[in-house]
Computed example of a mutant assay.
Amino acid sequence: MTLTPAQARSAFRAGLRVPTSGYSPGWTQANLISLPREHAYDFLLFAQRNPKPCPVLDVTEPGETSASIFAGDLRTDLPAYRVYRDGELVEERAEVRDLWRDDLVSFLIGCSFTFEAALIEAGVPVRHVEAGSNVPMYRTNRDCRPAGALSGPLVVSMRPVPAPLVATAVRVTSRYPAVHGAPVHIGSPAELGIRDLDSPDFGAAVEIRPGELPVFWACGVTPQAAVMRSKPSFAIGHAPGHMAITDARDSEFLVP
C-alpha cells in the first residue's frame, strides 16, 4: 500500500492484479481510455462537455505509451485492462502490448480514489478500503451531453457515509474538482435509476450500515459506458477499479 508509483507499476507489470484503492497514498490515480485517433476529438469534446465524470488530466499523442504524468508503460503498468470491439467487451487481460496501435490516443481521467485518503483523514469511513474490496459503481438514468459520435450514461461510484459526516464528505471532496469533486447525489438511489445497491454494474457491493446514507460521485468509468453505447470500432480501458497510478501528487489537484 505504501509503494511508490514506479514500484506499484512494476508490481502490476509483474502480474499483481488488484483494485488500486489505497495504493501509493499521496499519488494521484487515473482512469484510462484509449481510442483510435479518428474518435479522439469526439472524446475530448465529450469530456469537455461532461467534466464531472470525465476530468481530463493528460492526453497522449497517437501511439505514445506514456504520458507527462505517467512515466510507466500504458500497455503493461495497470493491473488489468478491458478491450472493446464495436462497443462490445471482448476480453479483460493483464496487458495489451500486442493490441497497441500507432493511432491510439490515450486519455488519463481523474479518479475518486485520489480523495479517499483525505476522507479518511477527516474521519469519514471508506467502506471498500476497510473491506479490501473494489468500490461499487452503477450506471444511472442520467445521460451525459453527447459529442459527435459519442454518447452514454453517467456512471457513479458509491460510498456509504454516516449521516452526521455527509457534510464533511462534501466539503472534503469538493476541494478536488479535477478528480470528480463533490458528490452528484446523496440519498435515494432510485432517483438515479439504481434499483439495487447490492448489484453494482462494476466493482463489488459494500455494506451500508444503520445510520449511513449512500453518497454518489461521478465516476471515470463513464467513458467506457459511452464506448459500450456508441460502439467505436476499438477501445482499450482500465478494468474498473484497477487504475493507472501516476507520478502526480494528490496535492497538485487540491484547491483552497
Results as ranks from 00 to 15, higher is better:
M137R: 13
N134V: 09
G123V: 08
S68H: 02
S174Y: 00
I186Q: 05
Q7V: 10
A8P: 03
P51L: 01
G22W: 07
E64L: 14
S251P: 13
L165W: 04
I186C: 02
A11Y: 10
I69D: 08
A11C: 14
A67L: 08
V227H: 13
R9H: 02
V206G: 08
M243Q: 06
R97K: 11
P25R: 07
L150I: 06
P136D: 03
E116M: 05
S174I: 01
K52H: 08
A169P: 07
A248V: 04
S24Q: 06
S24G: 11
S10W: 03
R159D: 08
M137Y: 05
G26R: 05
G220L: 05
L119Y: 03
A204R: 06
F115Q: 06
S68P: 00
V59I: 13
V124N: 08
G72Y: 03
L192P: 05
L104A: 15
S66E: 15
S106T: 15
H39D: 13
Y84F: 15
R93F: 10
C111A: 01
P125E: 09
G123M: 10
W217N: 08
P146N: 01
R13F: 05
V206I: 11
P55W: 07
G241T: 11
A225P: 12
R175F: 04
P189L: 06
A71V: 13
F234M: 01
A8E: 02
G203A: 11
V96E: 15
R139I: 02
R37G: 00
F107H: 04
P5A: 06
D201Y: 12
L99N: 11
S24F: 07
Y41T: 09
S233G: 09
A94D: 10
A149P: 07
M228W: 04
G220T: 07
A131T: 12
L254V: 11
E212Q: 13
V221R: 09
L35N: 04
E64R: 15
H39E: 10
V179N: 13
P53M: 04
A205H: 06
M1W: 03
T168V: 14
D98H: 13
G211Q: 11
Y81N: 08
T28P: 05
P183N: 14
T28W: 08
V124Q: 11
G193R: 03
P214I: 04
V170F: 13
I186S: 04
E95P: 11
L104S: 15
N31R: 09
D201C: 12
T4L: 05
Y138S: 01
T20V: 10
E116L: 06
L74M: 04
Y23V: 14
K231Y: 02
R37W: 01
A118Y: 04
G193A: 03
T28M: 10
N134E: 10
A147C: 11
